[in-house]
Write a protein that binds this DNA or RNA. Structure first.
Length: 877
RNA sequence: GGGCGAUUAGCUCAGUUGGUUCAGAGCACCUGCCUUACAAGCAGGGGGUCGUAGGUUCGAAUCCUACAUCGCCCACCA
């Protein structure tokens, strides 16, 4: 069989992915096995795969694949999120490009465009995941607007409403004037902005040329002022309390009130109050019973209260009004000022605090169990440091504004039967609503046409917080519950810390509210994928490589390894394609190891001692690595599990084992060693499979012909047997001897193919069981233990034993002496420090027994070595 | 403004309750090799007073206190 020298990933990946799919290896049905469940964080339906997804989903796939091999019934549920505001924004833009204005469409027409867009783009990201090797149960693909899911969301809304946990009210909300919708606090990002502080004076009513000056960053809101506020303790202004002032330009009369809230140190110590456009002013307005004048339209232009500025944009008005104030002598001065301004997470528009009628969800009761069960580690965060910010958020949680003035999403199931604020019912369907409305109004003649459903939809997260329950039909009353009982609670959630509040916290709340139980046992937080300059990878910066071309270039396995090489949980991943290159090199290394093994000619003859010993060592070493690997996995230290796997393959197997086992050039290998090597290779393929599934499967089948269902993806994870420390230690000594031999070969320019002799003078009883390996690797023709030192030889010392390589030419005695002296000096220094400790009475009294014993052993070893070195030096004189 | 976390080799990170070979790994780097599985490779090697300053201790990367720098989260100062 001709095997190419380079592993060709593109030829194998789709082949095996199709094969796995065909055999249904990704699919899961409840059975008697233990379930292992992950629900995917559903990506936005209209998105494409980015590097963050790559990292996130690689981790999930690694966990799922290993769980499957551990004999669990692994179920990874994929799906997408309708992403209400993001998708709606995209569709609006797309229509705009086609010359269609959303305003001219009916709701149904617009939704049709949304669905079209969803169907066109929805599958892209899932297909990309397949290229990465994601072993999701695709039969279970869900979408947050699927019929059943939609029903569940409505049902939860109705339920919470009936429990009194959802209410409707006028509140100051974050208004996005571009998307024309309210946003939750979590959807607002605050950024520092250079702005100006305008000092504006207001004339005191009925006074001769008496003025009061306020400082504001938003002069346009003067048109909405309904009071001036001062601190009651402020001596400068005390006398003004109760008087009235005239609002410049608007020429309205407003009162001067006092409130502790005002900081006398800031600005002039006088604050203008605009209850309709500032959250604090709103509070003060309520407290002092002030009027509230809304001056903005929903799109950020001024409304009829804006007078001559009506229909102009808020930022234009700011400039214009500043000029006008100046011209009319109201503007005293302006100062540069840095303040924080809220921006919409989705549209990046400057948020306008705005009074509006919205739906809210009470959080206090929901938050309690969600906080407690994270703090007590019933739900474990990895890394645990995220518990801190989770706690802080949960303890200061505010009610959740769940309504959005959008069309794409789950429409709020409130049905209005009259014009009043409270003339509505909340119901699962319009039929149900009609019954309720009839009951309330006593109007038996009412029909569905008398009902008008609330136009708004719900926040996207109001659907995704139900994900771990809804994907298993947990809200469907007609469902037999077999699925939800079996798969819920899920095991691990892998997600980004950015959505800890948006999503993770709320899933936990929903879990306790609706299942009385946690939704997952572990939350693994990934970091942010950054470029070499430390910038977040994003489409707008154009610094993100295309995942699919990476896969094309390095292979999916190579990319997976590259992503995981240095990404401990919670740490950002500084991405460098060199890491994928390393990953690809790793797959190639395995490939070539396989080529070597397959190239051997096999014959029946007695197994050489070195091979026997090599197998004994490697089996032990494999167990040792397996213990490390399992422990790393159990602690969610995926990068460390990968590194141990990497070393097992590269260092232990390729660099040591294969070099030991391989026959001399042109010579055959004995069948025992050959069979054993294949067995060991299979064990390696199992262990690498979660990280590099494609090449593992390819080699699994190249090793031998197998029945259909015999695939590494469903093979058993190897069992870690007890590690024999004497083997580990013994081999370490052999390694040290071999390294010394290699060094001498290199220093003296003795090619590896030139055989040499080795003589050993034993001064200490050490493990000799790997002598055959030293002989093989060192290419030693004659290997003997002797009593006396050898003249004219290169020499070195390992564990007080002297090794000699006799050489016909004269050796450089001076150099040998210098080397010995140096080593002697070091050892003496070492001894001194050890004896310093042993002579310290406080150390002897305070240190534990074991530590003292160790120091004593170190002393003994050092004394021994000094003796050998001195004798050796003496022999040169 | 409040809180949290970090600072260990050029880079990315390990380092479990202070005490064995505790100063480590991978990559990068340097040297020598196209040796017959792999140059996407092999063999060997250099490199850090563990952010700074104090303190506790027989002993500190590890514990304590300040300070410095960076990052994250939260927050209504106009």
């Amino acid at each position: 069989m001709e095997i190419p020298k380079i592993y060709e990933s593109d030829k194998t990946e789709s082949k095996w992915y199709d094969y796995w799919m065909k055999n249904g290896f990704f699919n899961s049905q409840p059975d008697e096995r233990e379930a292992y469940t992950i629900v995917i964080p559903p990506p936005n339906v209209t998105g494409v795969l980015h590097m963050g997804h790559m990292l996130n989903n690689t981790i999930q796939d690694v966990l799922v694949r290993r769980a499957r091999m551990l004999g669990k019934n692994a179920c990874w549920v994929p799906g997408t999120d309708h992403a209400s505001i993001a998708t709606e924004a995209k569709v609006v833009n797309k229509l705009k490009a086609e010359g269609i204005d959303k305003k001219n469409l009916t709701r149904d027409e617009f939704l049709e465009h949304c669905w079209e867009w969803t169907h066109k783009h929805g599958g892209i990201i899932l297909d990309q995941l397949k290229k990465l090797g994601a072993s999701c149960d695709w039969n279970r693909t869900h979408f947050t607007m699927d019929e059943g899911y939609y029903k569940a969301v409505i049902q939860v809304f109705v339920d919470l409403f009936e429990k009194g946990m959802i209410y409707r009210g006028v509140r100051m909300v974050n208004w996005d004037p571009q998307a024309h919708t309210a946003l939750s606090d979590e959807e607002v990002n605050y950024k520092e902005v250079n702005s100006k502080l305008y000092y504006v004076r207001y004339k005191i009513q009925d006074a001769e040329d008496e003025w009061v000056t306020i400082a504001t960053t938003r002069p346009e809101t003067i048109l909405g002022d309904t009071a001036i506020c001062i601190n009651p303790t402020d001596e400068r202004y005390k006398h003004l309390a109760g008087k009235n002032v005239i609002v410049p330009i608007a020429n309205r009369i407003i009162p001067i009130i006092t409130d502790e809230y005002v900081d006398p140190e800031f600005g002039t110590g006088c604050l203008k109050i605009t209850p309709a456009h500032d959250p604090n002013d709103y509070e003060i307005g309520i407290k002092h019973n002030l009027d509230s004048i809304d001056i903005f339209n929903d799109n950020g232009t001024l409304n009829e209260n804006g007078g001559e500025y009506q229909n102009k944009d808020r930022f234009d008005v700011r400039k214009k009004i500043a000029k006008d104030l100046e011209a009319q002598g109201y503007l005293i001065k302006t100062e540069d000022h840095i303040n924080k301004i809220g921006f919409s997470e989705r549209t990046d528009a400057v948020i306008e605090p705005k009074l509006s009628l919205q739906w809210f969800c009470k959080m206090e009761d929901l938050a309690k169990p969600a906080l407690d069960n994270v703090m007590n580690d019933n739900i474990a965060f990895h890394p645990p440091k995220f518990k801190n910010s989770y706690k802080h958020w949960m303890e200061n949680i505010k009610d959740w504004c769940v309504s959005r003035q959008l069309w794409w999403g789950h429409q709020i199931p409130a049905y209005f039967f009259g014009k009043g604020m409270n003339d509505y019912v909340v119901a699962n369907s319009i039929v149900e609503a009609l019954e309720k409305a009839k009951a309330i109004t006593g109007n038996a003649k009412m029909t569905v046409h008398d009902l008008k459903q609330d136009e708004d939809v719900m926040d996207t997260w109001f659907s995704s917080w139900l994900w771990p329950i809804a994907v298993f039909g947990g809200f469907d009353k007609d469902n037999d519950g077999k699925e939800i009982d079996y798969y819920y609670p899920t095991n691990d959630l892998v997600t980004a810390p950015e959505i800890m509040f948006f999503w993770v916290a709320r899933m936990i709340m929903a879990g306790y509210e609706y299942k009385g139980e946690l939704p997952f046992k572990n939350v693994y937080y990934t970091g942010i994928v950054r470029d070499k300059l430390g910038r977040k990878m994003s489409k707008s910066l154009g610094n993100s490589p295309d995942p699919l071309s990476l896969i094309e270039k390095y292979g999916a396995d190579g990319v997976r390894v590259g992503m995981l090489l240095s990404s401990p949980a919670g740490n950002d991943l500084p991405f460098d394609s060199a890491q994928c290159e390393q990953g690809r090199n790793f797959t190639n290394k395995i490939w070539n190891a396989f080529r070597l093994v397959k190239s051997w000619e096999v014959k029946d003859f007695e197994q050489p001692e070195y091979a026997k010993k090599g197998i004994e060592w490697f089996e032990n070493q494999l167990n040792a690595r397996l213990v490390e690997i399992n422990s790393s996995y159990d602690q969610f230290r995926i990068s460390e599990a990968l590194m141990s796997t990497y070393k097992l393959v590269w260092d232990d197997f390729c660099s040591w084992y294969l070099e030991i086992a391989k026959p001399a050039y042109g010579q055959p290998i004995d069948s025992t060693t050959y069979q054993k090597t294949l067995e060991l290779f299979e064990a390696l393929l199992r262990i690498i499979h979660p990280f590099t599934p494609f090449i593992a499967e390819e080699l699994w089948h190249l090793i031998k012909e197998r029945p259909d269902k015999d695939c590494v993806i469903v093979a058993k994870w190897p069992e870690a047997k007890k590690v024999d420390e004497t083997i580990t230690k013994g081999f370490e000594i052999a390694e040290e001897v071999i390294t010394n031999i290699r060094n001498i070969r290199k220093e003296k320019n003795i090619a590896n193919k030139v055989e040499i002799d080795l003589r050993i003078k034993k001064n200490q009883n050490t493990d000799t069981s790997f002598d055959a390996i030293i002989q093989k690797i060192g290419n030693i023709s004659s290997f003997e233990y002797i009593e006396n030192k050898v003249d004219n030889a290169f020499s070195f010392i390992v564990k007080s034993n002297e090794f000699f390589i006799p050489f016909s030419e004269d050796i450089d005695v001076e150099a040998e002496i210098a080397k010995l002296k140096e080593e002697l000096q070091y050892t003496k220094g070492f001894l001194k420090s050890v004896e310093g400790k042993l002579n310290n009475q406080k150390f002897m009294a305070g240190a534990p027994e074991q530590v003292v014993a160790n120091e004593k052993r170190k002393q003994e070893d050092a004394l021994n070595k000094i003796k050998v070195l001195e004798e050796k030096l003496g022999s040169y004189v």
